[in-house]
């Protein structure tokens, strides 16, 4: 019985590896090149807020907290995983990681700016709604009356469909 389970687990792992190695790699070769070296070097970096280790309810609440009291989190290293989103406004393109709440009727997002400014959209970026894991230093800025949160010097650690 144990052998059967082990075989099934190995087969599932092999299949998932095959899946990961298909389209997402084509789109993100440049990102991986750029980030892999940094990722290795930063593997032991201190993560202050690791949203990837939380349940969806907790992630949403934590992000809500970060967005409403951004000064409490300024300068902290944040890692988050959810869907990629991008929007162009007045000639400038913004990238974000969007998190939906448990009822999927509300969503919170945090913008990110990749450290490698040479990466171009769309070829070097994930597709909309692809799940991404991004890490960066939390910061915020004001525009008009609104406050926006952003992860500076961000790295895309993973992309999965």
């Amino acid at each position: 019985m144990k052998e059967v389970i082990a075989a099934l687990v190995l087969a599932a792992a092999a299949l998932s590896l095959t899946a990961c190695g298909s389209d997402s790699n084509k789109n993100s070769t440049a990102i991986e090149k750029t980030t892999s070296a940094v990722r290795e070097a930063a593997a032991d970096d201190k993560i202050d807020v690791d949203l990837t280790a939380m349940s969806s309810t907790m992630i949403y609440s934590k992000v809500f907290n970060m967005v409403t009291t951004p000064s409490d989190y300024k300068g902290q290293m944040v890692r988050m995983r959810w869907n990629f989103s991008t929007v162009e406004d007045e000639g400038e393109r913004y990238y974000a990681c969007i998190i939906a709440d448990a009822t999927a009727c509300c969503s919170q997002g945090i913008e990110f700016e990749l450290s490698d400014k040479s990466l171009k959209y769309p070829k070097d970026y994930p597709k909309a709604d692809e799940e991404i894991t991004v890490k960066g230093e939390f910061d915020y800025y004001k525009r008009d009356v609104y406050t926006y949160c952003v992860l500076r010097n961000a790295e895309l650690e993973a992309i999965s469909k």
């Binding site: 309810t57 949403y60 609440s61 809500f64 409403t68 448990a102 009822t103 009727c105 509300c106």
Partner: peptide, 17 residues
């Protein structure tokens, strides 16, 4: 709007905020 309404009606995570 639908998010605001849904959140008020079902209190999805408002207790955590």
């Amino acid at each position: 709007i639908s998010g605001d309404v849904c959140s008020t009606l079902f209190g999805s995570t408002s207790i955590l905020t």
